[in-house]
C-alpha cells in the first residue's frame, strides 16, 4: 500500500508556525522522519487558515524538496496554490483533490494532464457525500470518464470513497468497503483508491487502533493507498502484515523492516 505521509500540514501547530515564520526546520524534520519511516509520498497542505496559500505552498514545496526526493501530494482546495506548486515539483506530483463537479473537474484534469500529475478524486458532488455505495461508485465512474476525456488514464487516479468518523456515521463503514471493491470494475486498468485514514477515528478513543484496523480491512477490499501517519509504527507494521497476507509481498522474517525500508 502506498502511504502518503500526512504530517506536513499547516493544521498542525508546528507546521502552521513554521509557515508563518518561514522556518524550514520543522517542515524538513517531518519530511525526513516520514521518508525514513516508509512514506511513499509527502502530503503538502498549507492549512485551512493560510492568508497567502499560493506563496505558502510554493515555499513548502521548495523546502521539502531540499531534503527529500519523495514525490509530493499537493493538498489544497485552492487550485491556484496547487498549480503554483506543480510548477516547482521536481518529479510528477499528485493533486489532492477534486470532487465530481463539473467546473472543478475541468480545471484539475487540465492541469493534471499538463503536468503529468496523478489526481485524488473524491466520490462526492454538490449534493455532498452519499452514503450508498452505488452512488459513490457512480460518481467515481463519472470522474474516470471525465478524466479519460482529458487523456488521463484511470491508473493515474486515486478515488477516495470518503470516510466519515465511525462514531457518528457507523453505517457508512460497510458502504465504503463495498465502494472500494466495486471501483475496480469501472475500468481496465482500474483506478486506484485512497482514503484519509485518520478521518475514521475522529473524536474516538483508541484512534490508532481504529486507524490500523480500518487500514487492513480496507486493504482486503482493494485499497491501494492512504493519507496517513507514516510515523505510526504499529500502523506501518499492520500494513506490512496485510501485504503479506494478501500475497502482495513475499514473506521473510524481516518483512516489516523490508516494507519500511523499501524507499531507502
Amino acid at each position: 500500500m502506498i502511504i502518503i505521509g500526512e504530517r506536513i500540514n499547516g493544521m498542525f501547530k508546528d507546521i502552521g508556525g513554521a509557515i508563518k515564520d518561514r522556518d524550514p526546520a520543522p517542515v524538513q524534520e517531518w519530511a525526513r522522519k516520514q521518508e525514513y519511516n516508509g512514506a511513499h509520498y509527502l502530503d503538502i497542505n498549507v492549512g485551512p487558515s493560510s492568508a497567502e496559500p499560493v506563496e505558502a505552498m510554493k515555499w513548502l514545496v521548495e523546502v521539502t524538496q531540499e531534503v527529500s526526493d519523495l514525490p509530493l501530494c499537493l493538498d489544497s482546495t485552492k487550485y491556484d496554490a496547487i498549480e503554483a506548486g506543480l510548477k516547482l515539483c521536481k518529479q510528477p506530483a499528485m493533486i489532492n483533490s477534486v470532487p465530481a463537479e463539473m467546473p472543478k473537474m475541468e480545471r484539475v484534469f487540465a492541469m493534471a494532464a499538463e503536468h503529468g500529475a496523478e489526481v485524488i478524486c473524491l466520490a462526492m458532488n454538490e449534493e455532498g457525500i452519499p452514503k450508498d455505495a452505488d452512488i459513490r461508485v457512480g460518481l467515481a465512474a463519472e470522474l474516470v470518464a471525465t478524466a479519460d476525456a482529458f487523456g488521463i488514464t484511470p491508473d493515474m487516479l486515486y478515488i477516495d470513497p470518503l470516510v466519515l468518523p465511525c462514531n457518528v456515521a457507523q453505517d457508512h463503514g460497510p458502504e465504503v468497503m463495498r465502494t472500494l471493491r466495486e471501483i475496480k470494475v469501472i475500468s481496465d486498468p482500474a483506478p486506484k483508491t485512497t482514503v484519509g485514514l485518520s478521518n475514521i477515528s475522529q473524536g474516538t478513543k483508541n484512534r490508532e487502533l481504529i486507524n490500523r484496523t480500518f487500514a487492513v480491512m480496507a486493504m482486503a477490499n482493494g485499497l491501494d493507498s492512504a493519507i496517513a501517519d507514516a510515523c505510526d509504527d504499529e500502523l506501518m507494521a499492520a500494513v506490512a502484515s496485510a501485504r503479506i497476507i494478501l500475497d502482495m509481498d513475499i514473506y521473510c522474517d524481516s518483512y516489516v523492516d523490508v516494507f519500511k525500508q523499501r524507499n531507502r
Partner: peptide
C-alpha cells in the same frame, strides 16, 4: 438507472 454510465456500472457489478 439515472444515467447510461450508472447502468453500465450496474451491469459490470452484476446488478
Amino acid at each position: 438507472s439515472p444515467t447510461c454510465l450508472a447502468f453500465a456500472m450496474a451491469l459490470a457489478s452484476g446488478k
